[in-house]
């Protein structure tokens, strides 16, 4: 671009961008810092916090008080499990809609997306009762099913937009080459759509990892993921800043790191194919 990047202008932009970035990131940085402080130091003034000593104490206490690994594992099982299940259902559906479009394909997609519009509270009561009656409360399997269904419309939509970009001729070529439907999807479509599938996978793992309605309503301890684990710090332990910080850091670190590493794929996934 023909922007005249004078050094002065560039300096202003750099300072502004770094300031804004730092402010947005600050809460995360702050809990990270607090998690290495003693409870006494953690409630001092910001300057006091920064100049006090560092310790791993809080992490030990959090692990002693509650089973972090169990909740971490629950979060992994729920987010990865529901995403993979959703992909298995969504890939054939997206194939059908992208490559054999009919008159009603657009309507079908809109309808699928509209199920996302149904607020969870609308079905909270029956879901709660169904879970209770089938003995699914506080089980991982029950929650995997719910999270799969919640994210299915988004998974289908995203895959659909990615598949749309794959030229139909290539699939036709495979058909001419003697591939049946299974081979066509398995050997041609899926490998070609790997970037799209990857970003769909990532985004949905993140959404499922952070899902905090059903996970809070339908679990208590055994199947509780990290969202529930943190919610249990709501009060009055919330006043123990160092422990809360340590627990929070442990809850968000895995997905934060995953998110940072997969930034590029995510950006495309996040835009739902609507922005090139």
């Amino acid at each position: 671009m023909s922007r005249k990047s004078t050094p002065a202008r560039q300096a202003v932009v750099t300072v502004a961008a770094w300031t804004v970035g730092f402010l947005i990131f600050f809460p995360i940085l702050w809990i990270f810092i607090l998690s290495f402080k003693t409870e006494g130091d953690a409630i001092r003034t910001p300057l006091g916090v920064l100049t006090s000593g560092w310790t791993f104490e809080s992490y030990h206490e959090v692990q002693e008080r509650s089973n972090y690994l169990l909740h971490f594992w629950n979060s992994v099982v729920l987010s990865v499990g529901s995403t993979i299940l959703a992909l298995v259902i969504a890939i054939p559906a997206a194939w059908a809609m992208a490559f054999v479009p009919g008159k009603r394909t657009k309507d079908l997609l809109m309808w699928m997306l509209s199920t996302k519009m149904m607020p969870a509270v609308g079905v909270l009561v029956p879901m709660y009762l169904l879970f209770r009656d089938f003995g699914l409360l506080d089980t991982r399997i029950g929650l995997v099913v719910v999270l799969t269904l919640i994210n299915l419309p988004i998974v289908i939509w995203m895959l659909y937009t990615y598949f749309k970009e794959i030229p139909g001729e290539i699939l036709e070529a495979a058909r001419m080459d003697g591939a049946n439907l299974r081979s066509e999807i398995l050997y041609i479509l899926t490998p070609m759509a790997v970037p799209g599938i990857a970003s769909t996978l990532l985004l949905n793992i993140i959404l499922a990892w952070n899902e905090a309605f059903w996970t809070l309503q339908l679990t208590t301890s055994n199947a509780a993921p990290l969202t529930q684990f943190i919610a249990s710090y709501s009060s009055p332990e919330g006043l123990f800043y160092a422990k809360l910080s340590a627990a929070s850091t442990m809850a968000i670190a895995p997905i934060l790191i995953l998110g940072w590493f997969s930034q590029k794929q995510l950006v495309r996934g996040l835009t739902f194919g609507a922005v090139k």
Binding site: G21, I206, A212, A231, L256, G259
Partner: peptide, 13 residues
Amino acid sequence: VMVIAPFFVMPTV
């Protein structure tokens, strides 16, 4: 990276 970060933070946290 700093600007994106809050998106990954779960609502309860």
